[in-house]
Design a protein around this nucleic acid. Sequence first.
DNA 1: CTTTAATCGAGACGGTACGTCGTGTCTTAGA
DNA 2: TCTAAGACACGACGTACCGTCTCGATTAAAG
Lengths: 197, 197, 197, 197
Amino acid sequence: MAPQRTDQPQAATRGPRADTLETVLTAAFRILINEGAHALTPQRVHRETGIARTTIYRNWPTTADLMTTMLERATGEQDMPPFTGDLEADLLIAVDSLVFRFNHRPLRPLFGALVEHGRQEGQGDVAAGYIKGVLAPITRALKEGCERGDLTLVDVDDAVLSLTGPLLTKHVLLGQTVSENDGALAVHEFLLLHRSG
Amino acid sequence: MAPQRTDQPQAATRGPRADTLETVLTAAFRILINEGAHALTPQRVHRETGIARTTIYRNWPTTADLMTTMLERATGEQDMPPFTGDLEADLLIAVDSLVFRFNHRPLRPLFGALVEHGRQEGQGDVAAGYIKGVLAPITRALKEGCERGDLTLVDVDDAVLSLTGPLLTKHVLLGQTVSENDGALAVHEFLLLHRSG
Amino acid sequence: MAPQRTDQPQAATRGPRADTLETVLTAAFRILINEGAHALTPQRVHRETGIARTTIYRNWPTTADLMTTMLERATGEQDMPPFTGDLEADLLIAVDSLVFRFNHRPLRPLFGALVEHGRQEGQGDVAAGYIKGVLAPITRALKEGCERGDLTLVDVDDAVLSLTGPLLTKHVLLGQTVSENDGALAVHEFLLLHRSG
Amino acid sequence: MAPQRTDQPQAATRGPRADTLETVLTAAFRILINEGAHALTPQRVHRETGIARTTIYRNWPTTADLMTTMLERATGEQDMPPFTGDLEADLLIAVDSLVFRFNHRPLRPLFGALVEHGRQEGQGDVAAGYIKGVLAPITRALKEGCERGDLTLVDVDDAVLSLTGPLLTKHVLLGQTVSENDGALAVHEFLLLHRSG
DNA sequence: CTTTAATCGAGACGGTACGTCGTGTCTTAGA
DNA sequence: TCTAAGACACGACGTACCGTCTCGATTAAAG
């Protein structure tokens, strides 16, 4: 038999069609946010979107795969606020933005799902990556502050935790309302400790 | 007088037998810790314990009920470390103990369950109560510090968050190892900010 | 050891109390008639009567026992119509009474249960006995007819079947309405065949 | 045009696969005959056949549905005996065949199921239809007799009942053995009454 | 009029079956 | 090649009834 001439790579799995991917991920994210991890099932996504159950399973064999795709897509989607160059102002803006998000697109159910998802084999990084993405504006503000010499930090990541940890805990773990004042106070105390000079 | 006849055939009012309760709760807690919230199902508890599925449903109609019983029983079970009367020493001991716990009886696997449980109607307090129980030694140390006049705090609960929030976030949300040094550093910075005088 | 003097038989089980027995059997019969065999359960009798489930099980370990007690009590309870001494009149009255019963206290569900019950080990006679009880007035009329010499019958039981079989089949097996006219016609044909002379 | 998307995930519209249907009905009928109505449960059919319980429920949501399918399939399966054209001979053959059936594929075990099933909304006809199917050969013999003028009957169905009712009652309700002689006698008396001339 | 024993009420338990829902696989057909 | 659609086996869910068991509380008959 003559060798077959193919000018496309073998096993060229193309993955889901663009519209399928879009529809599914959008619905999945909405379900996850609104109703928590237990509600995010292939069956449910199928009902919401009309995409055939078979199709969902073909493209995302496990729910964890769906979660991973969602997170990879959502990571880095943070709307990075404009920077003024003034450390305190930048921090206040970034922290305010985080607190605003707590109250309007709460991270609580999402984080619950994330941590459960992080327990899956080798998926821990995806979850942690998403969380870091949420904190990215604050990380950037601190980094710029360091570069300008306004701050003296041993480790930027630890500093981000030091600044946002109490707020995250209050919202995510305790489920309590976090006020703008809480954010401002955290920034104030942080600067007391770490502002240079 | 004719004998009184009640119409409630199976109305369980006295609750489960002591041994049933013990067996179920122990197994449920183990499953929750080792495998996370999604693994804690009546079916699973039945398989682990041999307790009839019916019995489990009779005593804990929903998984949330099981969760509530577990949390109420576990809340307050903290081994309160001895107090020296020295603020810094007490805080270091309490925070060390917390960090030790992170590394030996991690809170992280419980977190998903706590969040999901907190979403249930009126069960938010139970979940938050459990976390507060974990932080109770620190709360006590701070309160005593205030009474002695060593500390000036506006709100003790906020102070507890400020001290432990970064550690909790690092452990629970990011899944990173928290070292004793992290704890000591947190105490140090906390005292810098809030020690009287 | 000296022999114990007891002038009562050992294991003097007294059986159910009179009122318990009355209450249970009445309710059981009502349920059986109105809703069929599948509805007659200990649980159900308990709900109807308030008699403790335990008590029912104690006195009637199986549903078949309950059925047997009911049938033994109900057999022979037929209200035997008065006899005129005229064969045709007596038969018409007896058959009319049977047809009336079809239409007002239908035998269909009861017989369904009876036959199922008859399948149980050694309970066949109880069921057949009840059915014969229902047919007793007709049997008596035929017997008296024979004694008076109005009828010539090889076997009275077969004759009863021959007379009532079509009616029973129409009601019980086919579930069709049996009219008084059907009854009268059956009597008429029966007499054509079997009247002496 | 956007692809049509239906919202019915599992709406079974095409019915069971041929082999599934065959396996289930065969087993169901066997169970029904051998052990009666109370033994015919989805769970039981599942155990007997290996067909998944889910599949059974999908195709026959209630036990009544299973019953209906079985009866519809069994109705008309009677092996219609050949006809000679001689009324008495034909009737004897048909009745003999019925009596033979009583003794080899008894109707009695089906009876309880038929009655219970007949109680279901709108299912009375299916059950009655099955019985009529069993009697079809006799109905045909009588009809042909009428057409030839050998018989004078007001209503063929009533005549069938009149002929077979005693036999059916003896077999189904009383559970007594019906002999060939019983059948022959019934035919004899029937002809005495209804033969023309 | 007590005492004694059988019965009753009650609740908890281990089971079996129910009917439903979600999962993941497969096959067939269609775009 | 991907998608749609439907059938299937499997497992968990939450409910209902079953039958057994304990324990007190009644009740009725015996001494």
